[in-house]
Write a protein that binds this DNA or RNA. Structure first.
Lengths: 319, 319
DNA sequence: ACCCATTCCGGGAAAAGTC
DNA sequence: GACTTTTCCCGGAATGGGT
């Protein structure tokens, strides 16, 4: 649907060009009247285009809201899946929708740029382009940014291969893997996109909060797989912890009111960052995993898993 | 005993100096006769010294042979101790003897150098120093070299701390330790002595012989402990193996007549090297451990230990 | 397909750190 | 000294490599 609309709009642009040339070319001054008429036609057409774009933006906004709602539902399903529920966490349909809307918006972006060029060549008093374009552009940028940002998701939450039924519990010195994915299959084939991960970028100020580092390289190139796979996969073999033992425990610092957290209740996050660039648009996309627990021995696994269940129940039910 | 003899000899050297001055100083030419007599005295004394040194060298050679025999017996005891026999493997007595003999020989070395200086100043036809000194020096050097070389021993054979009753069986990625010791407590305090270890410096050409590398630094400074401890200690936390898998198996190469060795019968050696320097004497001392077996899992320990027993029985009994 | 050797890793237990 | 958390490491099982 979107695509057809865009193609339709594109043809409007072509109508302009002749009209523009004539109005700029005073070969026959006696035909001012005719030119006046043409200018009115041009003005009407410009108003129409602006109106259509506004309409399109309104629709795509609705669509985006819908998609983000669907994505929220998927997130909820994923969360339940992590807890063992037999839910469908396939992303294919969402990816199709996101990509379609993304394509539409990017085409609209191109159209806006073309219109801006036309405005450069001809403008007049109360030109609707002059008046509306900046607003339209801002709105489009915001939509694209918001769409791309929400399209960057953690497809697979961190999990040790040996305990596939217990995701979100990681053991030090044991391998685990996690995967992020961009649901919009549009990217610049001339440049590689790099995604990086970081653990506990903004650690809570809780006293005794352990600090960990991820071994192995923390950046990967985004891979575009076959027709149905797109996204980036990060498989880390090992993460190793390093407790912040020395360095002034700062017992009196804020946040120490509640005693040091039990280790199996300490929640950690991994943040994915993706430097996205397409059609002149450059964005830093971020997404992060569900909170997980880090243990050092398998004998902590049950209580760690209990924490994961507990936390996810709490944040699921109230909603 | 040695030391007293040396001090005695040292005083001979002092007698020379006046005799030398006079013979060199023709203040009273008319006393040629007296000088002649002095020269004869000098000659006689030089012959005496040479004779005494020869005698000393002979004695110390006997002593050295005795010490090396004792050391051989100690080695035998150590070998049996490794197999579980309750034997005494204390090195203290041997160290005392070796050090005493070493001191004597080094003093003799100094004396020979002093005599060489005297010979520089005065010499004459059929000078015994001229004739005998090179021989004496060579003999002394050989004795010192041989003594020092045999004084460098592996005090503790490689063994994993967790299996103290099963030395000479090492597991990959498990820590083990071994210690070498120089039984002659003489060293240059101005310079640090560095000892290095190397595994399988000259590996047998047997097909499929595994190649290993020692992790952690392979060199240590020799530490001189308190009055009763001298020697160097090397504690390695981990060794890790690397099998020579690729790189052309060379099946047809020599040594392949016997099939590839069972892994628990493959014997490995660690060589200790010590750059020794004292009193202008510089030597590269080497010693190496008893052959040991490298395993990768504890379930190989029993057969590996059987190999160690087997090999040591074989090389012990025939003797 | 089997066997030998190595890697992987659960889990008991010792060690280290903490109040 | 008890408790929490991590390290150590045995030994069963899975994996891999060679014939």
């Amino acid at each position: 649907l979107e695509n057809l609309q865009e193609a339709f709009d594109f043809s409007y642009k072509l109508y302009y060009q002749p009209g523009q040339d004539h109005s700029n070319d005073p070969q026959y001054m006696q035909q001012v009247q005719a030119l006046q008429a043409k200018l009115q036609t041009l003005d009407r057409q410009r108003r129409e285009v602006v109106a259509q774009i506004q309409q399109l933006l309104g629709r795509s906004e609705t669509l985006r809201d819908f998609l983000q709602q669907e994505l929220g539902a998927w997130r909820e399903r994923q969360r339940r899946g992590c807890l063992g529920a037999p839910v469908d966490t396939c992303l294919l349909q969402l990816q199709t929708w996101f990509t379609a809307l993304g394509e539409g918006l990017f085409q609209l972006l191109q159209l806006l740029r073309a219109l801006a060029e036309l405005r450069q060549k001809v403008t007049y008093e109360r030109d609707p382009l002059q008046a509306e374009m900046p607003l339209l552009e801002t709105r489009l940028q915001e939509q694209l940014t918001s769409l791309l940002q929400s399209a960057f998701v953690v497809e697979q939450q961190p999990c040790m291969p040996n305990t596939p039924k217990r995701p979100l519990v990681l053991r030090t010195a044991s391998k685990f893997c996690t995967r992020a994915r961009l649901l919009i299959r549009l990217y610049d084939r001339n440049h590689r996109m790099e995604a990086t991960i970081h653990i506990d970028r903004d650690p809570p100020k809780t006293r005794g909060f352990r600090k960990f580092n991820i071994l192995t390289s923390s950046s990967k190139t985004v891979l575009a797989g076959d027709s149905h796979r797109e996204g980036l996969v990060c498989d880390f073999q090992y993460l190793t912890l390093k407790e912040q033992k020395g360095g002034g425990s700062g017992k009196g610092s804020r946040g120490s009111s509640e005693g040091p957290l039990v280790v199996t209740e300490e929640l950690h996050l991994i943040t994915f960052t993706l430097a996205y660039a397409y059609c002149g648009l450059e964005l830093k996309l971020e997404t992060c995993t569900l909170p997980f627990v880090i243990i050092s021995n398998n004998n902590q696994l049950s209580s760690a898993w209990a924490s994961v269940l507990w936390f996810n129940m709490l944040s699921t039910n109230p909603k």
